[in-house]
Simulated scan of single mutants.
Amino acid sequence: MNKAFMKSERRTPEKIAIFLPSRIGDSILSLPAAICLEQLNRKYNSNLKLTVYSKPFLVKLLSALNLFSCKGVTLSEKFKSLICPPDRAFFIETTNANFGFRAKTTYGTENPYKKFLKFTHQPVFHRMSFAPFQETWDEIRASLPEELVTFLLDEIGLSYYSAALFGITLELGFTAEQIIETFKFSPDIIPLDNFSEIPFSDEKGYYVFCAEAGYGRKHLNERCWDIDKYFEIADKIHADTGAKMVFTGVNREIMLPDKDYIVDMRGTLNLYQLACLMKNAKGYIGNDTGPLHVANLMRTPSVAAYFQEIHMAGFGPIFASLNKKVLRPQNVEEMLAKVPN
């Protein structure tokens, strides 16, 4: 008998904890596997109780999606795990922020630079977060059923990173056939009713730009296109549409052009407010970074500049049809041609 069906005979639910990465984009890329697990749980009555844990700044956004139970990685949650640990915990990223959380069985990638973090199992499907390279994906792909990989990449349109995490569903006893028959995924599966704040509005609409890339206070210049090129795009779109151009991010060191149609909202929004801003935008234009994935989650069409092939295939947004990719753009026209109307 399949393990997924055997679980339905348990008197008490099997508690499953999934710990999302600390980066915004990687956390959103982790959602398809968690959504699939909930769909499988309902279909097969497998008696799993899923809780998704994230950095506290992500909790409001994820909770507003109403897809699964979401909690922050806090001292109180770590204390609770000492008294009543989940049956299994999947740590997608190896980070000191998760130190102190206990589970009966743990899955993760041990990192020589984080010696205190040990795991019961070290599955290959967690390694993209630690080693985001083509050879890592090749190793993960070889460990997964080929029919499942083909389905996730070609039919659903997921990135390598998102597809790799379906190893969690396999580890919990579901088969590739069950996943393929059950998993339904499209932009309209994400409920957006709870994203009701209006951080900005204009009668002619607006586009959102993010001309930086990074996480926390770390800026990744190698993933950034020339900001002056984005200013040129903003000028051309405004001339054609009259729409406002809203710049987001956290770095306010670079001066924006002093023009009435350019709006500086850098460093002023929390993540939930950023999602609300994206929800009502005409489109996103910018680098391959966290706000791109937030726009995609909010069903907003986007065009993004990429600078490595592995980032395009390995970490592209979860709704590929809404994202136009430009690899190492050479001029403004390349990006402008793909800007959503």
Rank of each mutant, 00 (worst) to 15 (best):
117 L>D: 07
120 T>P: 03
100 G>I: 01
101 F>T: 01
118 K>L: 10
111 N>R: 09
121 H>W: 03
130 F>P: 00
102 R>W: 07
103 A>S: 02
118 K>Y: 11
133 F>G: 04
119 F>E: 04
126 H>P: 03
117 L>K: 08
105 T>P: 04
114 K>V: 10
112 P>Q: 00
109 T>M: 06
124 V>K: 10
104 K>F: 09
119 F>K: 03
114 K>I: 12
114 K>D: 00
122 Q>L: 00
129 S>M: 13
120 T>L: 07
105 T>C: 09
127 R>A: 08
126 H>F: 08
111 N>T: 10
111 N>V: 06
125 F>T: 02
101 F>V: 03
110 E>K: 08
115 K>S: 15
116 F>K: 15
104 K>N: 09
129 S>L: 09
128 M>I: 02
115 K>A: 15
116 F>D: 13
118 K>P: 05
96 N>A: 13
98 N>W: 15
110 E>M: 02
106 T>W: 03
119 F>A: 00
110 E>I: 08
103 A>G: 00
113 Y>R: 12
110 E>F: 00
125 F>N: 03
106 T>I: 06
109 T>C: 12
110 E>R: 07
120 T>F: 02
101 F>W: 01
108 G>L: 00
115 K>R: 15
113 Y>T: 13
118 K>S: 12
127 R>K: 14
120 T>H: 11
130 F>L: 14
96 N>K: 10
126 H>W: 01
114 K>H: 09
102 R>E: 06
99 F>H: 07
100 G>Y: 05
131 A>F: 15
101 F>D: 03
132 P>T: 01
105 T>R: 13
107 Y>F: 10
131 A>W: 12
100 G>M: 02
115 K>N: 14
123 P>N: 03
104 K>Q: 11
108 G>K: 09
120 T>R: 02
116 F>R: 15
116 F>S: 14
97 A>M: 11
112 P>T: 07
122 Q>G: 01
106 T>E: 01
132 P>V: 02
125 F>I: 06
100 G>N: 01
119 F>N: 03
114 K>Y: 08
109 T>E: 06
130 F>C: 11
128 M>L: 14
99 F>E: 10
116 F>E: 14
99 F>K: 10
96 N>L: 12
106 T>Q: 02
126 H>M: 14
133 F>P: 04
